[in-house]
């Protein structure tokens, strides 16, 4: 987790989802909300999906992302984010 949070973009994505757990958005949308380059956001999202922190809702025409629904992962992320704040 600490390694993940070293990346500014990854940190901002996790913060965004922590503050807006209900949201589902594309990589482009998320890059607008957090003010980061879309390609970097896409790479971070792919990594976070692998780690199970973000869910990829994949269809033929759209790739959308949302926060994990697993309580233990959400708590872990919250704890680390709070320690950075």
């Amino acid at each position: 987790m600490k390694n993940l949070l070293k990346s500014e973009v990854t940190k901002k994505i996790l913060l965004f989802f922590n503050e807006n757990p209900h949201s589902i958005d594309t990589a482009k949308g998320i890059s607008v909300w957090i003010g980061c380059d879309m390609d970097k956001v896409q790479r971070s999202l792919d990594l976070l999906v692998k780690k199970g922190m973000v869910i990829n809702h994949k269809t033929i025409s759209t790739d959308a992302y949302s926060y994990t629904t697993k309580k233990d992962i959400v708590k872990k992320i919250e704890k680390h984010i709070k320690s950075l704040a």
Partner: peptide, 21 residues
């Protein structure tokens, strides 16, 4: 405005996900 804009974007994304099948 920001939370409302994010909520609107969510609804729009859901619309796209549902329409794709």
């Amino acid at each position: 405005i920001r939370p409302r804009a994010i909520a609107l974007s969510t609804i729009h994304t859901i619309h796209r996900l549902l329409s794709s099948t």
